[in-house]
Structure formats: structure tokens, C-alpha cells
Design a protein around this nucleic acid. Sequence first.
DNA 1: ATTCGGACGGCC
DNA 2: GCCGTCCGAATT
Length: 652
Amino acid sequence: MTSPDVPLIAHVAVDVALPHLDRPFDYVVTPAQTATVAVGVRVRVRFAGKLRDGYVLALDHSTDVAAPAPLERVLSPEVVMPPATAGLVRAVADHWGGTFSDVVRLAIPPRHATSEAASRPRRPDPDTSQPAQVLPGYPGAERFLAALGAGEGVRAAWTPVPVFAPPGDWAAGLLDAAAATLSAGRGAILMVPDAAAMAVLTAQASARFSEGSFVTLTADLGPAARYRNYLAVSRGDVRCVLGTRGAVFAPVADLGLIAVWDEGNDAYAEPRAPYPHVREVAALRASREGSGLLLAGYGRTAEVAALAARGWLVPVDLPARDIRRLGPAVRAATDTDRALERDPHARGARLPHDVFTVLRAGLASGPVLVQVPRAGYAPRLRCQTCRAAADCPTCGLPLRGECGPEGLTLTCVSCGPLPGPWRCPHCGDTRLRAPQVGVARTAEELGRAFPQTAVVQSWSGHRVETVGAAPALILATPGAEPRPEAGYAAAVLLDAGVLLARPDLRAGEEALRRWLEASALVRAAELDGTVLIVGEPTERAVQALVRLDAAGAAARELSEREQAHFPPAARLVLLEGPRAALEDAEAAWRPVAGAEHFGPILLEDDVWRLTLRCPPERGAELVGGMKSLVSERSARKAPGAVRLRVDPQSVG
DNA sequence: ATTCGGACGGCC
DNA sequence: GCCGTCCGAATT
């Protein structure tokens, strides 16, 4: 109801996590508050008798509420949630079946009052005069840059050549796109998956743009710096943001570009409800705000292939033959010998002769990377006779083999070293076999084969960030590869089958991405850079690596998902909770055209999982129905937690 | 008649 | 979630 008698009304998104209260509530703005209240500010309101934080979504003179309560106070005059951000938060909540307040927590850093009072440093405009360095070498990218430079919302996918080529690498490509956008007077957000990629990007951004002309937004800045940088963006003091996961929501005004580097990296899958994915949020936001989009990575997901297939974005890739010409030389070797399966102390068996050839040749001119998909010594052990997993007799968790002074010692993750000898509880055998070999064991083997060579080990939790140009063996788990100062002379990718055997829909895509990441640290073939992958050469992912054909692999992956009706060719919705809740769900999904259901299956005591699937164009309807179900249950206080997950990253 | 508690409904 | 209220049972 609108009338001049109605006082100024603030429509407030109150910070309550309950799904059935996921809507705005109206409050009267008192005369004293009119000077500071504004759309997008934080307020404090009385809600169900308690004071809570909220955000002003709109201000007007209309309300359906008979006697709205007054706003308790305006917390701060800072506009931290402009309408575009509120709209995006709502859209993300709706897409993933979550609440506004869940998504707000991902999007807006907590307030840090002293940072608001601090003086505003003068921010220079970014210097965009340097010519583009990398993207112009890719077909169609000149046009992409020109369109960004004209302020158009163009969208592209990009797979750079996976080869060691600083400074003309992926980060330079992203900065090319940012510079073009900024020169048009629009803002840009550049997304990276983790701190290591952030270090690479910020180093190059600092070299290229003037000091203070961009900000970083990452969780590890700490509350004060994170909020200060967020304020610099929301106040419009800065138009260029480099950041991780949460930065995709940064309230950049007149956004002209979101670029996502390594779009297949699972760090982009938000682990907190409602589990949105940065790639999808970026696409949603680019669409809503008419901004440009660049989805890039050495690997490519089926999701990006799907966007390309329907012409929603344009690949700016080199033809595969040019990628092979410019990249390292890649070949595959079969691991013929499975002797390790029989004897945990067998030596060198999984390393075919080719591996030593490549290592020897590489070590003649620089460091060589050996990628091993497992950390530790013998990460998994089984009974020699009955092949049962070797578990801790105390707690039942898996035992790991470690190399101690008296040979192999068995250690439980939670209980520590096994006090006595191990005995199989099923057949009584005391002998073990090691179906998997880790970095430490491989280091031991290769150290024996190359006694004069330094051996470096790097894995998550024990990361080595960089290595020099001197010959050395660098053993690393996928994703923990040290950055070489001058490129690796060679890379050997061991145990391809281990990565491919993960019981996940994305195993092939993910394995290829990790191999390409390693290849991108190796010198070009014309500098004798070589990549050798040890695995089954008939595997499609192995073949795609040998051809350096991420785009082709993604297209094939997409057609398989289409056949199998999996995302992105379908919307997948998981509903987890007590049996009774899942039974209630049937009425909600049954009317959705083309919806199918699987299960429910029992996960733990009275927690069941129902899997639902429908054509993508019915996705909003299906998710909406499930959200209503969750809301109704919450309203009537039905027992048991119900969790909703939409297109989860890993489908086992 | 009076007090206490648990369940239920609404939250502006 | 939290609070307020409403009703029934126990207590004087």
C-alpha cells in the first residue's frame, strides 16, 4: 500500500538463516534515521524480539504491514550491498536453492568499524596504455579485446598453450582483458582459485598497473584488510579487483569483465551452503549485469564446452596443431609391470624404461618435475592374501605405510604408529601389498637411480613454492608443483590410472586439467621440453594430453554427459535428510516435466539421499519446488535437518 | 484460583 | 532460531 501518510519504509533483508523467513521485512525509518539510511546499508532491527543485523534492499512509502516496527539503528552509512549485488545474491540463492542470508555471508565481508573511519587514500586510475601482450596471439581474441575496449559485454573461453612462457603467460592474458575493459571506463574482476595463483597474478598486475589502482579480495587478508578493500570497491574508489572465490560478488560498479582463471579448479566450488560455483556465479552475473566474461584455463570443463556449444560464449583458442607446435613434446608410456601389487618393497617396477630416458635427458639441462598422485610413502595398503584394506585395529581408519629407520612402519592417521605387527583380521596373514606408491617412496627410488641429483618433494601441507634452474628432481603431488624459475626441462606424470580411477564423474576432466597444469611448467618442444605420461595410452584423457587438446576433450566430455543426462546437460538436485522429508518431496518433483528420481539411499542412521534430475530448462522449477519443501518443513518445525545441493561439483 | 511448563505459531 | 502466548495439568 502506498500513500503519503505512510512514513518512509525500509525493506530489510534480515540476517536469519531460516528458509521460511527468506523474504524482506518492513521497518519504519524514524526521522532521526533519514539522514543516514540508504539502499544497501547495514541496519540493526528488532526481529522476533531479538536484535539482528540486516541490509536495506529498498526505501519507499509502501508496505502491507499494518504497524511496522521502527528500525533500531543504521549501523553504518556505507553502501555495502548496492542493488546489483542484492539482485545477484537473490539470483544465486534461488539457483542453488539457498537463502539470501546464506549467500550474503559468502558475498559481503563482516564489518570492521575502524576500517570505515580510516582515511581514503587517493586511488590512481590504472595505467592501461601498455599494449596487450598475450591474448592477441589467439584467434578471435583481438576482436574480444576490441569489444571489451568498446565497453561491450562479450564472452569468451580461452585455453592458453600449456607451456612455460613467463611473462607472457595466463596472468598476462587476464591482464590484457582487464586493461581493455578498464580503458573503456568499466570495472573488472579477475578470479583465481588459490593463493599460489594469486601471487602470480598480483605480481604481474603490480608490474603493469599503477600502485593502488587495483585491490585484492581474499579470505587470508584478515578481517580489517578484507573489509577495507571491499569498501574501496563499494565506494567506487577502485574499479579493478583480483581475488579468490568470494570476490565474484565484489560490488564493482559498471562491471565490464569477470575473468575466471583455471575455471575447472574445484577450489571454485563453495563448500558452504548453498554451495554455489564461481564459474556459474560469474556467468550468471555477466548475464545480469551485461558484463564481459572470460572463462580460462589449461583444461576446460564440459560446462564451458556447453556454453560454447550454444554460442553463448566464443572460444579464442589456437588450433590444436599450433598448440602442439608451441607446447612441450608430449608422449605416453605404458606401465607394464605391476610387480608392486605383489611386493611393497619391489623397486622401480612401475617406472618403465622410458621414464629414466626422459629424466636423464631432462636433468642434463635443468630441473625435472615428477608428478605423483599420492603424498606419503605407501598411502594405501592391502592384505597380501585376501586383499582386504589394511585398517587400524583400534579405530578402523586406513593405515599408511611410512619409511622408518627399520623399513616400512605402519601408521594410523588418528592413533599414530601401530604398536605391534599387523595381522589381517580376515585371513590372519601378516604380509602386505602396496597397490599405491606415494611421493616419498618414489623419491627414494629415483634418488637411488640418480644418486648425484638433488631431490625436492612438495605436497599439500609441505609445499615448495619455487625451484631454480639447476638440475634437480622435483617430486610433487598434483596442484603442489613448485614454479620453476626457468621452466622444467621435462615432466613425468606417474600413475595416470590413479587419477582416472577416482569414482567421480569428473575424474577424466580433472586428471587432464592437472596434467596440463604440470605441462604448463615445462619448456617448449623447441627448447627440448618434454612431457611423459605413464598410463594406459588408450585412455581418452591420456590421448587428449598427448594431443594437448583440452577443447576437444571438453566437447567429448559434454557429449557423454548429454548421453548420460548429467550436468551440464541436466540439472541434478540432491536432497538429504530423514526418510519422511524425502517422501514429502515426491509431490514437489512429480509435476516437473521430465524429472526423474533415484534412491533414496541410506547414508547414515535416518539420513537418506534422494537424487533428482530434470532437463536444464526445468531446473528452476525443480529447485524452487525443493526450496518450498525445505521452507515448509522449517516453518512447521519438522524434525531432522534437510540439505539441498544443486549440480554438486563431485558426483561419485 | 494459581502457577508452571511445554507446544505452537509468528516473526515487519 | 527465538519469543510470546495459550492451554492443560499439577498444586494451594
